[in-house]
Design a protein around this nucleic acid. Structure first.
Lengths: 142, 142
DNA sequence: TATAAGCTTAGAGTTAGCTCTAAGGTCAAC
DNA sequence: GTTGACCTTAGAGCTAACTCTAAGCTTATA
């Protein structure tokens, strides 16, 4: 049985984050001491590590909630439910990649167009492009 | 001279956002009617469009503040200042791209590993991988 | 002249995921 | 027995960029 700081050390989460995840139903201490100290058993620890792993991949806390509810009763859930969550996440990531690549492209073009030197910015071609608005729109959402 | 809703129509910003930008010093109505209505002249309009363009590219409001302070007095600022801001943004974008590409890669591998069928999730290889933690860590920040 | 559309302000709410604080109780070591 | 590290809670604060609300003027149209 680990105390919260030990679980923190083991998972790389902070104690604050562990309590925060508990508040949101992601992890849980299956025991408490008389004084109220949280104690985590092996099942708790594996669950916390699962959350950390999923978080590292980029799943949101909501995604992870869904994955966890599958995890606690795998026989009642299908592989398809799991792939649906994963595919949805991949779609999100791909959409954001498209946006960022467009931003990257625009910024690179701007940088190539400007001397970047100590001359004053009166004829700066980056400023000119921003003035003229002749740059691709890359953002659909932040 | 445009009223706020007309500026909104012209720039694609909402009236809420225009007031919000004003509160943050990005744009400004150079005149007010007796009743307090905002009126925007050509200079105001061009500034608002500059902000919108920069925002579309992905610059933050803080970045845009800096660009605007260069814009109002170009002779006191160098091209290098402009390229510095742009390069910094590009570095940010590139860093995020690396993260997202790693996420994309991990998610694709997970999806390939799983049948995605109606079978129950007892032997789901995505769940197994998340359990085992044998996936790359892709996140340094959200 | 009445109604509706549009404008004003200050300020609260939203999203996601933490991060920190205050005030106090617990525990192990010296 | 006292220091100091660690634990508890509720709740506030943070970031970024909006987004919305309420309460009340103003203006244009019919």
């Amino acid at each position: 049985m680990l105390k919260i700081s030990e679980l923190a050390a083991k998972t790389g989460l902070s104690t604050h984050t562990i309590r925060f995840y508990e508040k949101h139903g992601l992890i849980n201490a299956s025991e408490r001491s008389e004084a109220g100290y949280r104690y985590y058993d092996d099942v708790d620890i594996r669950r916390a590590q699962f959350v950390k792993t999923a978080r590292n991949i980029g799943f949101s806390l909501d995604d992870i909630s869904q994955l966890l509810s599958i995890r606690v009763d795998k026989t009642s859930h299908s592989c398809q439910e799991v792939t649906d969550i994963t595919q949805y996440k991949l779609d999100e990531v791909n959409a954001r990649l498209v946006e960022l690549q467009s931003m990257q492209n625009t910024l690179e073009i701007l940088l190539e167009s400007c001397c970047g030197g100590p001359e004053n910015a009166t004829h700066c071609s980056i400023m000119d492009a921003l003035e003229a608005g002749d740059v691709k729109s890359t953002r659909s959402a932040a």
